[in-house]
Amino acid sequence: MKKYNIKTLVFDLGGVYFTKGTILAIEKIIDMYEIKNKNRHLLRTFFRDGDKNEGNLVRLGLITMDEFEEKLISKFNIADGNHIRNLWFGSYIPNYKMEALINELGKKYRLVVFSGNIRERIEFLEKRYNFTEKFDDFVYSFDYQKNKNDIEFYRELLNHIDCDPSEAILIDDERKSVIYGQSVGLNSIIYFYTDHLINELKKYEIQIDL
């Protein structure tokens, strides 16, 4: 039986620590601004974190959230865009039992955030949930102009785990991110829900008392 000596746990934010807020926010925006059927696919693409989509550019820190909103308002002819930020950022809430799990894990392990995210959203969520004090280090897309579809972003992560990759676990809700993590030597777990995660962590001999 393989023995593990895990020292560091790496957590995604949206979809792991927090709910998948973007998916919910898009539906709210469609409803509030009565986005027509023919434009709904374009709206989802606009928010997507790949290629040269505005959603990717804002996560890379190449445009500000103000610029993102201006482009969204213009492209979809939105009359009053004052609600966009609150609709989007406010759709992220901590997943069930996640805060308690992080508090418990933080007593024994190094905890690192690894996230394709937006500077202004981190500030919003920090003000609301005060979550950053629970973690030891942060690797954000907007700080490195790299996102999770870039293997170099994962190599940057290795500079923050303070251990051998075999002694760390990447926890993400996207299978492609898990595969990238494994390719640089990290152990990886796909997040579905918190109790499932706890069971998966125990397979790595992670001590959890919840």
Rank of each mutant, 00 (worst) to 15 (best):
L158Q: 08
N56D: 12
E126N: 10
E167R: 03
N149V: 11
F76E: 04
L60W: 08
I189A: 02
I30N: 09
S115D: 12
F76T: 05
N37W: 02
D66V: 12
I122C: 03
L197C: 05
K134C: 09
R48D: 09
L57S: 08
Y191D: 02
F142N: 07
E167Y: 01
T19C: 05
I93D: 04
N39K: 14
Y129V: 09
F153R: 04
L101E: 10
E54D: 13
L57G: 02
D195L: 12
E54K: 08
N159M: 05
T194K: 05
S74K: 15
I35Q: 06
I23H: 12
F135R: 02
M1L: 10
K146M: 14
R175Q: 13
L62K: 15
Y33C: 00
L43H: 07
E54C: 11
N56E: 14
I189Y: 00
F68M: 04
K148W: 05
N86Y: 08
F47V: 09
E174P: 00
I26G: 01
W88I: 10
E69L: 12
I26E: 08
L210Y: 11
Q182M: 13
I26W: 01
T19G: 06
K71M: 02
S177E: 12
L9F: 03
N159E: 14
H160D: 03
T19P: 01
I26K: 07
F138Y: 14
E67L: 11
L24R: 12
K28Q: 12
M65R: 13
Y129D: 11
E120N: 06
E104A: 13
K36W: 04
K203C: 03
R119W: 00
F131P: 09
L125K: 09
V10L: 05
L60K: 11
V58Q: 02
I179D: 15
N199W: 02
W88S: 03
E54H: 13
Y191G: 01
V113W: 04
F192P: 00
E67M: 11
